[in-house]
Amino acid sequence: MKDSDLINLVLIAVSLLLAMALGLVAFFYFSRRKVVNAQLENAQMEIEHQKEILQATILTQEEERKRIAQDLHDAISSKLNIVSLNTNVLLDGGITSEESQGLLETILSISDTTLENSRRIAHDLLPPVLEKFGLWAALEELTNDFNRASNGLINLEGSYDKCLEPKDELHVFRIVQELVNNSIRHGKAKKIELKIEKNPFVLDYCDDGSGIDLIDKNMRAGLGMKNIQSRCDIINATSLLESCPGKGIKFSIQT
């Protein structure tokens, strides 16, 4: 081998090493860009999800305000109006004692009804039994309330030993309330099975209603379902919804 050939060989080897080095640096650069893009996409999706939850929370809040306003108007304000009118008639005088007795009885009766209504509204907003005796007692009360109106509608099974925080218990209770309301209002269910398991906490819910079409995005992502989903996210629970039209729904959450 001539001496100058060795120089050429070294030059070729250096060029090859350089090309290899540049290729590897380019590989790292493009891999990094790909990973960063994927991370950005995930972050974007997470932000979208958070936005949806926030929107659902605001909408639920507005719906709830509307319902409370309606309840107050129908059950309290209108009744108090009658009480006010009757009291004015009594104050104006010029009526017989039988008439005034009748008016007083009406006022008393309306006051009783209004009191009962205000208790019901307060109870609907936050059942006192949930705060005092916990989730299981609140679910039993909910079951009894519905079963009184429609015999054997809800069957509650299982056991619970306060494995959830009180604030999480409220979320679970609201989820059950929402599910039952959906089953009755939209699914026209005749039978609801509710089962609770402890350690880890598992809630299984199923009904025999009309079910929902999970392929239909509007049905799947309705306000009620979004509300349930956001509550599951808050208590760090995984949820699973199975349903098809005409076959009821099956819903479970696990912490």
């Binding site: 060795l6 250096v14 090493l17 350089l18």
Partner: peptide, 17 residues
């Protein structure tokens, strides 16, 4: 990475060259 990889060969062949 690119400089040391390429220059290593240049330095390694220095004595021979």
């Amino acid at each position: 990475f690119f400089y040391l990889l390429s220059s290593t060969l240049i330095f390694a062949t220095h004595n021979a060259v």
